[in-house]
Nucleic acid binder design. Structure first.
Lengths: 142, 142
DNA sequence: ACCTGCGCTTGCAATGTGCAAGTGACTGGC
DNA sequence: GCCAGTCACTTGCACATTGCAAGCGCAGGT
């Protein structure tokens, strides 16, 4: 029985910081959000991040984040059904938290880099524009 | 063997966000920092936060945070030796992260409050048997 | 001597994490 | 029709971390 902040019945306290940590207070959630902010969309892309999140953990975090209304899952094509994950407005707002983490890291942990999360206004996600990479043009029916 | 970011050999990646999360990426560390920012000093005071951190976890987090150079432990009196924990500059810089968390929580989790990180006394619900631990000089009478 | 408070430590069960392997829906090639 | 391959997960199991309660050592007070 999973009950990580069923959203709105604070698990621990009415403190905003504590409640936010109930949602993303673990080592992976915010990294998933980071990757989504940087333009990754599919399960497979998320799995291939530098940090190599274990697949079952990724599935679990995506489920939780979706329950919390931070991301949304949708099929971007039907006939092999393929899914895309995207941040909701609530989710993109987490960018500020990521930014604060990055700033602290850059300042206090020598050798770390920004990996540019601040994609919020910059163009080109640099890597494969997933949606068009595939060509689902041929709607072959059964 | 425990090696949660010995600080400076990145456990997972050179990404600043990931490295920062290696240090404070759990449910309790940042709450301890929050309490220290708000003026709490002793082990006992930290234990009595609203969220009721388990004592062994608190001891462990204080140890890790000290190793990471985020807090400092010192005896504030010798005979009965009593300890005070305080944030280093590196630690107070984490205030920005807390602030980002609080802002997100206030905006997206109805019912949460700010609990004003920038100093303030007794936010916890009245049932504080700790009385005035902030006055070691005198008075402990009932 | 005994009790109390502080600052922890220890034991142990419950929970969470990480790895590898497997599954099922589908497609494309032979 | 059969097989290999991809995507998106799920399952099983070992190991690590958490949470709870209790205990411990060192003071001081009575």
């Amino acid at each position: 029985m999973n009950r990580i902040a069923k959203a709105y019945d604070f698990a621990r306290s009415p403190c905003a910081a504590a409640s936010t940590l109930d949602i993303v207070g673990d080592k992976w959630s915010l990294l998933v959000i980071r990757d989504l902010l940087r333009g990754k969309k599919t399960y497979g892309e998320l799995q291939e991040s530098y940090e190599r999140i274990p697949t079952n953990i990724l599935a679990d975090r995506l489920r939780r984040l979706e329950e919390a209304g931070i991301i949304e899952k949708s099929a971007y094509q039907e006939r092999p059904v393929r899914f895309a994950y995207a941040l909701t407005a609530k989710g993109t707002d987490m960018g500020d938290i990521l930014l604060a983490l990055v700033r602290w890291g850059k300042k206090h942990i020598p050798g770390t880099q920004a990996v540019d999360i601040a994609k919020r206004e910059s163009p080109a996600p640099a890597r494969t524009p997933v949606a068009s990479a595939r060509n689902p043009a041929k709607a072959r029916r059964k």
